[in-house]
């Protein structure tokens, strides 16, 4: 489990979730994004292309992150969700809360 951070040519910061996003590491993701916003980053993409599964704590962390970025006047995109991961967002209606793109490339183009 882990998170890797990178930046594209247009300045969007991409955070890749590797492995699971669950109660044991959701705080780490929240702190990582908080550090990004504290240093002035306002366009953030979270990529789930290499994610296994997410639990409700992970979904809750994403809700908190989304709220924080919105309050800072920033934009958050999610991308790379496979069919199973996407179903978690649909079941919980969180697909209506987040801007979700099929691929990281599509998400980057939408900023």
């Amino acid at each position: 489990m882990g998170f890797t951070e990178s930046r594209d040519a247009t300045g969007v910061v991409m955070v890749q979730v590797e492995g699971q996003l669950i109660v044991g590491n959701r705080q780490e993701l929240k702190e990582l994004v908080q550090n990004l916003t504290d240093r002035g980053e306002r366009r953030i993409l979270i990529d789930f292309s290499r994610t296994g599964y997410i639990d409700s704590s992970g979904l809750g962390a994403l809700v908190s992150i989304s709220k924080r970025i919105r309050e800072m006047g920033g934009e958050l995109r999610l991308a790379g969700l496979n069919e199973d991961l996407r179903s978690l967002f649909e079941l919980t209606k969180l697909d209506t809360l987040f801007a979700i793109a099929e691929t990281p490339q599509q998400a980057l183009a939408s900023f």
Partner: peptide, 15 residues
């Protein structure tokens, strides 16, 4: 929807 918690049991029931 903007609440961070409260989805666990709901998800289990759905899955």
């Amino acid at each position: 929807l903007d609440e961070a918690g409260g989805r666990g049991l709901y998800l289990i029931r759905k899955l």
